[in-house]
Structure formats: structure tokens, C-alpha cells
């Protein structure tokens, strides 16, 4: 496929989509319990954990990436610990590194909408489910998830989109290895560096359209779900 007279970089696009999909699934799985835990925390430590989860929003991605390289380096304790379980690869400069970085970097985008949805749950309705003999997991899947679905959908979409668009952490943790860790945002940077403006342009335009589409989707979802609740 040719856009602006140069071939479209398919590899970075596929890699980006793969990393974003895997990260979103992982984040929904770990972000949901974190959101539940934070939403129900009454003590003052909650402020600390809320700030910790939101840290990637304000921290320069390079700072996050720097600490991740240090923590995940092949001779570091985390990697060595995993070796006991037969782990042989490494956690940086490959797809695993990209996913770990993405998960941490996008955590607030998953946790915050889901937490807000948990906090807005009608308490008496959840209590009613309890009196009707629904155990925790029973009412979680039959009452809480359906009532908090807006939070889950918005969280998932934002997480996916944000992971697609990340640059700094990916560059630090993943390096820039063609076909392995070169995502779309890095590919654009590369093209610009080497004056391949046409190639940069095609990828950039794609990202622009994608981002606009995602945001419109989020706002449309917010609107339609709100209307349905009224």
C-alpha cells in the first residue's frame, strides 16, 4: 500500500496494535481489583495509593522508562527471581518490556474510570443483591459489572488508545529494534530523523485519525450510556 508516494510501514502498526491489545487485557484484569480496592478504601492511605496510581499521568515518560530499565535489567533482582521459575529471556528491549512499560504507563487510564464507576454504584442495589443471597463474585458479575459497564468501556478504550500513542517509555524500555520494538510512534520519529517525511506523514495521519475516532467513540459512549440511565 502506497500513501504519499511511500510504502506504509505495516510492521510497526501490527506491533503497536498487538502491544496495545495485550496491555489492555492485562490492565483490565489487574486494574479492576485495584479500582475496587481503592474505591472501598476508607483510611487515609488511600490518598497515597491514588497518587501512586496516577503518577504516570504527570511523570515524564523518560523517568518512568529509566526506572523500569534499572528494575528490569537482566541482572536485576526481578529477572533473577523469575529465573528460579525457568524464565530464560529478558524483560527489556523486547515485546515483554514494551508490554510491562505500557501496563504501568497506562494504569491510571484504566483505574480511574472504573474506580469512578464503582464509587457511583447505587449502594442499596448492591445491598439488595446481597440480601437476595448473591455471593461476592455472583453479584460482581450480575450486578456490579453491568451497572459499572460505562467505566469499563471508557477505561478499556482510553487504555488502548493511550498505549497506542505512547512514545517515551517504549523508547526507553524497548529500544528501537526494527520488527521487534519499533512501534508506530517510534517509527514516525525515525522517519523524521532520516528526512523521510512522506513515510512519517502517512503514519502520523493514521494516528491522528485513529485518535480522533477513539475520542469521538468515548464521548459517544458516555452520552448514550448516560441517556439510557436517565
Amino acid at each position: 500500500m502506497q500513501i504519499f508516494g511511500s510504502p506504509l510501514d505495516v510492521d510497526p502498526i501490527l506491533l503497536t496494535l498487538e502491544v496495545a491489545s495485550i496491555s489492555t487485557v492485562i490492565l483490565l484484569l489487574i486494574g479492576t481489583p485495584i479500582a475496587w480496592w481503592l474505591a472501598h478504601m476508607r483510611s487515609r492511605v488511600r490518598i497515597f495509593f491514588e497518587a501512586l496510581v496516577s503518577l504516570p499521568l504527570v511523570l515524564p515518560p523518560t523517568v518512568l522508562g529509566f526506572y523500569l530499565i534499572i528494575a528490569l535489567n537482566p541482572n536485576g533482582e526481578i529477572t533473577q527471581f523469575l529465573r528460579h521459575f525457568g524464565f530464560e529471556g529478558q524483560l527489556t528491549f523486547n515485546k515483554t518490556g514494551l508490554i510491562i512499560g505500557s501496563v504501568i504507563y497506562s494504569l491510571p487510564f484504566t483505574v480511574q474510570p472504573i474506580m469512578a464507576a464503582f464509587e457511583a454504584l447505587p449502594g442499596q442495589v448492591v445491598d439488595a443483591a446481597r440480601t437476595l443471597r448473591a455471593s461476592f463474585f455472583d453479584r460482581f458479575f450480575t450486578v456490579i459489572v453491568p451497572l459499572a459497564r460505562q467505566g469499563f468501556i471508557v477505561g478499556a478504550v482510553l487504555t488502548f488508545a493511550h498505549t497506542v500513542g505512547e512514545f517515551g517509555v517504549v523508547l526507553m524500555v524497548g529500544g528501537n529494534i526494527e520488527g521487534q520494538t519499533r512501534t508506530v510512534s517510534i517509527a514516525i520519529f525515525d522517519h523524521v530523523e532520516s528526512y523521510e517525511y512522506a513515510a512519517a506523514h502517512s503514519l502520523s495521519l493514521l494516528m491522528l485519525l485513529f485518535s480522533m475516532l477513539v475520542l469521538m467513540l468515548v464521548y459517544a459512549l458516555n452520552r448514550s450510556l448516560q441517556i439510557r440511565q436517565d
Binding site: Q124, A128, A129, T131, S135
Partner: peptide, 28 residues
């Protein structure tokens, strides 16, 4: 746990499950 006390609780606000219709609430 309240799930095992066999209490039929009627709340001030009725507390019907909003994502289910009347039959769905009774079936629950």
C-alpha cells in the same frame, strides 16, 4: 454473612436492579 441469613429486605428506595425488568428482578 447476610447472604446466608434468609432476610427479605425491602429498602426505602425499593433498590430494584436497574438493568433488569420486573420479571428479571423477581427471577434474581
Amino acid at each position: 454473612p447476610v447472604e446466608r441469613r434468609d432476610i427479605g429486605f425491602v429498602f426505602q428506595s425499593a433498590a430494584l436492579l436497574p438493568h433488569k425488568n420486573v420479571r428479571g428482578n423477581l427471577d434474581y
